[in-house]
């Protein structure tokens, strides 16, 4: 700690101001999270009368006990893990294969097909929602894991990202492997794919977070309570006036809901920072 302090003290005034600003921004970012945690530790009735009571004793873990004892939050977390995890795995597989194809294989209509894929980036989800809902109804896919996973698999962003990444890898690597009698799949699997791990991580993180936080499609596709994902499940527990009643319980559920994402962030922090800074797209 002492060496850290001396490091800061030894810095220029500008650096110290910058450091102070960073701390301030960190507090601004952490503030809402800390507020959620504090609310989750307060008695619901006390909060209704005096929201400022969150800043002082007494605190209670009753909301957590109630969440563990009576809430469906764990089954919602389970559903969200299946959906977000499944979507991430399949998106990585499909986007990597498509990206490799667009970057390395010559086939008729490649350029046109790639443009069509890119056009997918310009089509908002809301534009296809009704048609998709209807199709999934005909196929009987609502209230099922495939019904929640399939719509996200057509990831134009994923294909674009992976295509760009594969393109940036020198072709000499493929040629050297082919000279060593490696098959096309072996080149993809053993030579190129390992080099795309940063892009895979970026795509995986964005896909997982997007699926985890998705609300509207699960809302209209997973209408049976046993298929609720976390976002829909937590929303369903709100009373008409959730802002004033049962807010501590709601926040305790939110803490449970946020925990898996927090753990993922801790493990993949480096990749998330890289992804956000855009450094993954070379």
């Amino acid at each position: 700690m002492a060496s850290h302090n001396s490091e800061i003290i030894g810095r220029s005034f500008g650096d110290r101001v910058l450091f102070g600003l960073v701390i301030l921004l960190a507090l601004v970012m952490a503030g809402p999270v800390l507020y959620v945690i504090a609310l989750s530790l307060k008695d619901n009735k006390e909060l209704m009368v005096d929201p400022h009571s969150v800043f002082h004793m007494p605190y209670t873990i009753k909301n957590y006990i109630d969440t563990i004892g009576t809430s469906n939050v764990f089954s919602w977390v389970f559903n969200s893990i299946i959906v977000a995890g499944g979507l991430t795995v399949f998106t990585l597989i499909l986007s990597s294969l498509a990206g490799y194809g667009f970057a390395r294989l010559n086939f008729p209509g490649r350029a046109v097909l790639f443009v069509i894929v890119l056009l997918g980036l310009a089509v908002p989800e809301q534009a296809v929602l009704i048609a998709r809902h209807q199709i999934f109804s005909w196929l009987g896919l609502h209230n099922s894991y495939p019904g929640l996973i399939l719509p996200g698999l057509s990831s134009a962003f994923g294909v674009f990202l992976m295509t760009q990444y594969f393109r940036a890898i020198p072709k000499e690597l493929d040629e050297a492997a082919i000279l060593d009698n490696a098959s096309r799949f072996r080149v993809f699997w053993k030579v190129l794919l390992p080099l795309t791990v940063p892009a895979q991580a970026t795509l995986g993180i964005f896909t997982f977070l997007g699926a985890w936080n998705d609300y509207f499609w699960p809302l209209i596709s997973a209408t049976k309570k046993e298929m609720f994902t976390l976002t829909v499940g937590i929303a369903s527990t709100q009373m008409n006036f959730a802002q004033s009643q049962g807010i501590g319980f709601l926040m305790a559920q939110a803490v449970f809901a946020g925990a898996p994402i927090l753990i993922i962030y801790l493990f993949f922090q480096k990749y998330i920072v890289t992804a956000v800074s855009g450094a993954a797209v070379r």
């Binding site: 809902h133 109804s137 209209i220 209408t223 829909v232 008409n240």
Partner: peptide
């Protein structure tokens, strides 16, 4: 009785349920 609780007022879900015959 199988009870499903929905976020107030729940009409987006209900409309979707009618649309899918469920």
């Amino acid at each position: 009785i199988n009870v499903t609780t929905v976020e107030w007022p729940g009409y987006d879900q209900l409309t979707a349920q009618f649309a899918s015959g469920d």
